[in-house]
Nucleic acid binder design. Sequence first.
RNA 1: CGGGGCGUAGCACAGUUGGUAGCGCGCAGCGUUUGGGACGCUGAGGUCGCAGGUUCAAGUCCUGUCGCCCCGACCA
Length: 407
Amino acid sequence: MRFSKSFVKTLRTAPKDETARGAQFLSRAGYVHKELAGIYDYLPLGLRVLENIKAIIREELNNIGCQEVLMSSLQNPEPWQKTDRWDIEKMDIWFKTELAAGGELGLAPTHEEPITKMMQSYISSYKDLPVYVYQFQTKFRNELRAKSGIMRTREFLMKDLYSFASSEDEHNKFYHAAEQAYKRIYDRLGIGQDTFQTFASGGVFAKYSHEFQTLTDIGEDTIYYNADKSVVLNEEVLNDEVLTELGVQREELQSAKAAEVGNIFTLGTKYSAPLGLVFNNKDGERKIVLMGCYGIGVSRVMGVIAEKSCDERGLVWPEQVAPYKYYLIGIGKEGTKQAEILYRDHENTILYDDRNLRPGEKFADAELMGIPYRVVISDKTLASNQAEITNRATGESKLVDLNQIQF
RNA sequence: CGGGGCGUAGCACAGUUGGUAGCGCGCAGCGUUUGGGACGCUGAGGUCGCAGGUUCAAGUCCUGUCGCCCCGACCA
């Protein structure tokens, strides 16, 4: 991308309605634009980050046999009434709307009910199982209080995956595969080091669920963990019974703030029973399908990465999620000429700052945006036919021969 | 939803006892600059969140309403 053609501008001061550091940088660097509290637009750079995160998730899920779909955002109340979740008393985060012709509709807060109903059309035999279906989809949740930029919002992008199995064995096998896939995903997103699979409340379906919690001061959850972090649990399940079950003492555990970046649940027949998702087994008996659900808040993950990967000057994206790998600056007449040539061959990986500005402003924006490598070509570097490459994370610079730069 | 703070130009802010709105950044033009947000001159940009009310006169006072931030509660 040519910076001069971008409609987005960077800001020198942070909008006063953002207080989280990562959120301030995302606004200042032009990744997102705020519409309302908890409601954001993703600008070209922000969209590229989201797409990079999605690509990693998609790859890992496809690898364990999942199939991608895209379901509707407008939802039929009927299956929700059957599971008793349509009532605002039962689910207080509903956004509801209505049809011009009469009748209510819901704006997708999640998709257990619709997908269970949808799968009725396709599952009728044990031969159809197991099956794993996921999507990247916008969810709407009428949160009482949105906060921390894109970390807790009323409209957000979520990857939700649902598994359908014919037996507990089959279910457990996939549940485990999903755990492993999640770990690989967080590793590839650059937050694996600080992300822990955590025992959490099972909500209404099961005794426990597993959350994936990433350490960050801005997180809303408090997690407790032992010395080698082999046991990690959410504060909400910190009680004697659980401690005994996990075989740890309260005194061994220390606490930290963390943000939930994923959650996996065993649903059992919670939805398949009331909605009648059944299949015939080998003996011709009707059985209820066993389900699981597995979520990752894609936009929240982006917020968590931004929050964790930044310094006084701005963002520091991990290479795999960065919107561009290189930020190219040409200084001086000849430097600019060479930069143009370089850019033309690598338009998709280079953010080329071709604006008619002094170098200092370009350096500042390169750092604010957090592009992993800054490439500078100037008379100074051209004297030896080289370019200077600076690593955003480490600050280290090195000179590389122009014809040897690997893009 | 309880408590606290706040809405004035794209962003950040000032605006005295009520007297008809200002600074910085950014933006436009010209010129000088060009390896760390440079400078000079000129200029554009506001129904002061919205709606009522009080007053000769409201950014300022009153009522209502919408929205924003923080703490807490809540969070399949």
